[in-house]
Every structure is written in C-alpha cells, then in structure tokens.
C-alpha cells in the first residue's frame, strides 16, 4: 500500500462518513458539540453591537486558495451566512471585508442570495457592505486601519487566511472599544492574536465556527466526521509508529 493510496482512502472514508452522518442526522439526534466560550462571547458581542447601534465588521482574510492551510478561505465563506441576520438588514451596518477580489465576489453573492429570499434589494443595499479595502495582505491592513475609525465597529470577527498583520487590525478594533473574535489565520496570525484576542479559536477549532449555535445537519455531520477522522489519525499514528519500529513499514 502506497502513501498516495492511503490518501485516497482517507478522502473516500471522509466522503462516505460525511454523507452517512448527513443522512443520519435527518432522523437521529445522537451527537452534541462542546461548549465554546469564544463563540458564545461572539454572539453576545454581535447582539450588543446591534443594540448599541454600532456596526459589525467581518474580515474574510486575504486568500481563497492556500496550499499550507487548505480550505481556510472556503471556511470563511462557510461562516458568512451565520452573520447574516434580519437585524443586519433592518439595523444595517454589517461590513464584510477581504483582501481577495474572489472572496469579495463570493461574499457579495452569498449576502445577496440570502437577503433576496425575504427582503427587497433596497434593504439589502443598506444592510451589508462588501468591500475590498486593499488587494494584498498589507494593503488590506492599510485599508482596515485607515477606514476603521470611521466605521465604528462594535464587533469584529476575523475569519479565513491571514498572517501576523491581523494584530494591527485587532488592536485598532479593541482600541475603538469593540470586541474581537478570531477563527482563522496562519500559525503566525494565531500566535500574535493569542496575545490580545480573548475570543480566539486555535488550530482545527476554527472549524467549530460555522453552524454555531443553531447547528444544521451539515455542520453536525462535518464535526462528527472530523472527530472520527481525528480518532482514526491518532490510532493510525500509533500503529504506524509501532510498525515502523518493528520494521514492517
């Protein structure tokens, strides 16, 4: 058995498990996800911002595709619907920023489709502002820092792919009296946000984000599949190490 074949096996098992759990969750309710204080805090901050009439900001990172952290850009997009609510439309003031044109186009499409289901286009225009503050990581930073004082954000959520420059975004938001939540970033990004962002999801925990708190069965199936795959991986590492030691592998 080659490593490539093992890779295909992993993809196959993951796909089968995901589909099976997705079907099972239609009728069964046998899985619960652990409590996350950070996500709870984000929800409080979001409603707090709406109540106080302050805007909310969502940063989707600066890359849709990334080889070292595959799926982070898509993950940011998966989180977006969770931030779109009727309040966003009525109260206005949700800005979605990214440093990648592709992500902005996707975000715009998601927001538009979401609101077209129940609201007029006029309201949608007021509700969500999708923007590209700058097309590179540092120009995104320059854009966020130079426009932030004007948008009076009460709650900032950092998602997707970003590096250490995120510390400047978070410091600007915190200095403005807002709350900051982060579920994304490279190792460098997470290491610097560890210093000043209390509501921070690290490593694979960033994938707890979409679907909370009202998890749908797609999210539940995804989480359970990840749990099972992780267990398989742990067992695989132990067995692999033993086999390597005895010279079988």
């Amino acid at each position: 058995m080659t490593w490539t074949l093992i890779g295909w096996l992993v993809i196959g098992i993951a796909a089968v498990l995901l589909a099976a759990f997705w079907i099972l969750f239609r009728t069964h309710d046998f899985y619960a996800i652990r409590y996350s204080a950070a996500i709870q805090s984000l929800q409080c901050a979001q409603s707090g911002a709406i109540e106080r009439g302050r805007s909310r900001q969502l940063v989707l990172g600066n890359q849709l595709n990334g080889w070292t952290y595959p799926g982070l850009g898509l993950h940011a997009l998966a989180c977006l619907p969770g931030f779109l609510s009727q309040e966003s439309v009525v109260e206005g003031g949700l800005s979605v920023a990214s440093g990648d044109g592709e992500l902005v186009v996707f975000a715009r499409q998601i927001a538009r489709q979401y609101y077209q289901q129940g609201f007029s286009l006029g309201l949608h225009q007021v509700g969500v502002q999708t923007m590209l503050p700058g097309p590179t990581p540092w120009s995104l930073t320059a854009g966020l820092l130079s426009t932030h004082p004007q948008n009076n954000s009460g709650s900032t959520a950092l998602l997707g792919y970003f590096g250490a420059e995120a510390l400047l975004w978070s410091e600007a938001a915190l200095g403005n009296g807002g709350d900051v939540f982060s579920a994304g970033g490279t190792l460098a990004g997470q290491s610097v946000l560890f210093l000043n962002v209390r509501d921070l999801l690290i490593g694979e925990r960033v994938f707890m984000m979409p679907g909370k708190p009202d998890a749908n069965r797609v999210s539940l199936a995804g989480w359970l599949t990840e749990d099972v795959l992780r267990l398989f991986l742990i067992v695989g590492l132990v067995v692999g190490a033993i086999l390597k030691m005895v010279g079988v592998l």
Partner: peptide, 16 residues
C-alpha cells in the same frame, strides 16, 4: 513527537 501530536489533535476534539 508522537505524544505531542496526539495531544494536540485531542485538544481539538469537538464532541461531548
């Protein structure tokens, strides 16, 4: 390496 990687992966466990 083995203990650390397994420990890190365990920290990410979602279910309860």
């Amino acid at each position: 390496m083995l203990v650390g990687v397994i420990g890190t992966l365990s920290y990410f466990h979602f279910g309860k």
